[in-house]
Nucleic acid binder design. Structure first.
Length: 359
DNA sequence: AAATCAAGCAACCGCCGTCGC
DNA sequence: AGCGACGGCGGTTGCTTGATT
């Protein structure tokens, strides 16, 4: 049983608004206000538009002090940071950026920022094989939509920014780590007894329905439930602080990018909030400036470093985060690459993400 | 010059929460 | 408490425009 439509669709105009319609709507609202009833508004004005459409037009384009385009670097940082913290809660993000609308920010994120953050990759190289361990992953790749993999990549990357090991609760799936990294992770695991808010944060999936979350934790944590502290984290940001509410934790140490969030987690388990977001801010600054360093396992088990984003400015788009496949043939494509991370493509992982994304 | 492709963006759709009756 | 109306929101669609072949 569906609900009644908000208006008579047959007698409602759709599509772009004409200047006359804009003028009529604007004039009426400026003179009379919305009257608290958007559904009745178009009738009063004499517009053949759905009330929701009027509301959207007013909120996104006609109301005063709306800004379009020309996002500043500071706005980029805020959007990215908040996206990592709370996900696609565009209205909340928009509330932090005066003059910006949720729709504008959403479009900006989807068309530009996301690519800036994660890089643009080829689309065609979808059915790659795992060249490291010989496991063929085609079946899994085929079973997933490109969109789902993009979201998977994005979420994994963002999760890794927030806490580099947050999305793999099974260390056996991880790529070989630098001994120091392994030691740090062991230390953190020992702290992860459910009382540590940082570790809770690391295991949080902000977009998942509670039922899915429960299922996930049932499988991985013996049913232990964890609230979503990321919301609390955001709430800890004082309203008066209109400047970036972050504490920078910059470092010239090449280990910084992958380990700073971990070390900070250890140091600041009793002070979650700014500092953790601050490390994110530093990561974002690096990424937005194409400086992020990452570590990948090599065949000789030595640690190699590469500059994830160094070629983005060349519009070569040859970013390769986690795949050893340096297929430069496709470097000029503007599409997202759906090739899968070597060490991460396991059935278990996709099962986990299937829970989250209704693949 | 025409066709094709990709990016950007405005607008729509449908779900969900809230509120009033 | 139940129901319907409405507003708000996020995801998605489809049109427009510019770039590339």
């Amino acid at each position: 049983m569906g609900r009644a439509p908000c208006c008579d669709k047959a007698n409602v105009k759709k599509g772009p608004w004409s200047p006359e319609e804009d003028a009529a709507l604007k004039a009426y609202i400026e003179k009379n206000g919305t009257g608290g009833n958007w559904i009745a508004l178009p009738q009063k004005i004499g517009l053949k538009r759905c009330g929701k459409s009027c509301r959207l037009r007013w909120l996104n384009y006609l109301r005063p002090n709306i800004k379009h385009g020309g996002f500043t670097e500071e706005e980029d940082n805020i959007i990215c940071s908040l996206y990592i913290s709370i996900g696609s809660r565009w209205s909340i993000i928009a509330a932090q950026l005066p003059g910006r609308t949720d729709n504008d920010i959403k479009n900006y994120w989807n068309t530009r920022l996301k690519k800036k953050l994660l890089g643009r990759r080829k689309q065609s190289n979808f059915n790659t094989k795992d060249t490291n361990n010989g496991i063929e992953e085609n079946s899994y790749s085929n079973a997933l939509s490109t969109s789902a993999l993009e979201r998977l990549q994005l979420h994994m990357q963002l999760q890794s920014l927030q806490n580099p090991f947050s999305f793999y609760n099974n260390p056996a799936l991880w790529p070989k780590l630098h001994p120091f990294q392994e030691k740090m992770i062991q230390t953190l695991q020992s702290l992860s007894d459910g009382s540590n808010p940082v570790m809770q944060n690391a295991l949080t999936f902000p977009h998942v329905e509670q039922g899915q979350k429960d299922e996930f934790y049932k499988r991985h944590h013996d049913g232990a439930k964890i609230d979503n502290p990321q919301i609390h984290l955001l709430e800890n940001i004082p309203e008066s602080n209109n400047e970036a509410p972050f504490v920078a934790s910059g470092s010239n140490n090449p280990m910084h990018s992958s380990l700073a969030p971990i070390t900070e987690a250890i140091e600041q388990t009793n002070n979650v909030g700014y500092q953790q977001v601050g490390s994110l801010q530093t990561e974002l600054d690096d990424i937005l400036n194409y400086r992020t360093i990452a570590y990948v396992p090599q065949e000789d088990n030595q640690i190699a470093e590469f500059d994830c984003f160094k070629e983005m400015n060349d519009s070569k788009d040859s970013l390769i985060w986690w795949s050893n496949d340096s297929d430069t043939k496709s470097a000029s494509s503007n599409s997202w690459d759906s090739s899968t991370p070597t060490a991460l493509l396991t059935q278990g992982m996709f099962q986990d993400y299937e829970l989250r994304y209704s693949l």
